[in-house]
């Protein structure tokens, strides 16, 4: 009885951990957003992030960007800090984002997967 119970708990926790690991894989947009935050450095708040995304050809709606940022923060991939109140924002502060260690690790692993996937395809990808 106890054995069975342990087995079930084990299975559930296993399932949970696979779920978690799946969540650790980055979606395409998440990947791009994280990379952009890294590129922007200390000045990474929503407006320059969105502008930068548009510049590299991945325009995204305001709402989608905020949703992604909130999700990344929840997952622990980004950390945010509140800046100083600014007059051009009626005294509201900017929220600056920084990629956490876990976030860098996620980008790195995601990059490795992609590089492996692309390996040997350079010829076809470069000259379609």
């Amino acid at each position: 009885m106890i054995l069975i119970y342990c087995k079930v708990v084990n299975q559930i926790s296993n399932a949970a951990s696979t779920n978690l690991s799946k969540r650790n894989q980055l979606g395409e947009l998440e990947h791009i957003v994280l990379s952009t935050i890294m590129r922007l450095g200390d000045e990474a708040y929503a407006l320059p992030i969105r502008a930068q995304l548009a510049e590299v050809g991945r325009s995204v709606s305001r709402g989608a960007l905020y949703t992604t940022l909130m999700r990344l923060e929840k997952k622990g991939f980004v950390e945010s800090r509140i800046g100083d109140p600014l007059p051009q924002r009626s005294g509201r502060a900017r929220r600056y984002f920084r990629v956490s260690a876990a976030g860098i690790a996620a980008v790195r692993s995601s990059r490795e997967v992609l590089l492996r996937v692309w390996g040997g395809l350079e010829d076809k990808l470069e000259n379609p």
Partner: peptide, 17 residues
């Protein structure tokens, strides 16, 4: 209820200006 409220409102106002 969102902790991001002020940041989002501020962003939009900044761009509006």
């Amino acid at each position: 209820d969102s902790p991001h409220r002020d940041a989002i409102l501020g962003d939009l106002e900044e761009e509006f200006r």
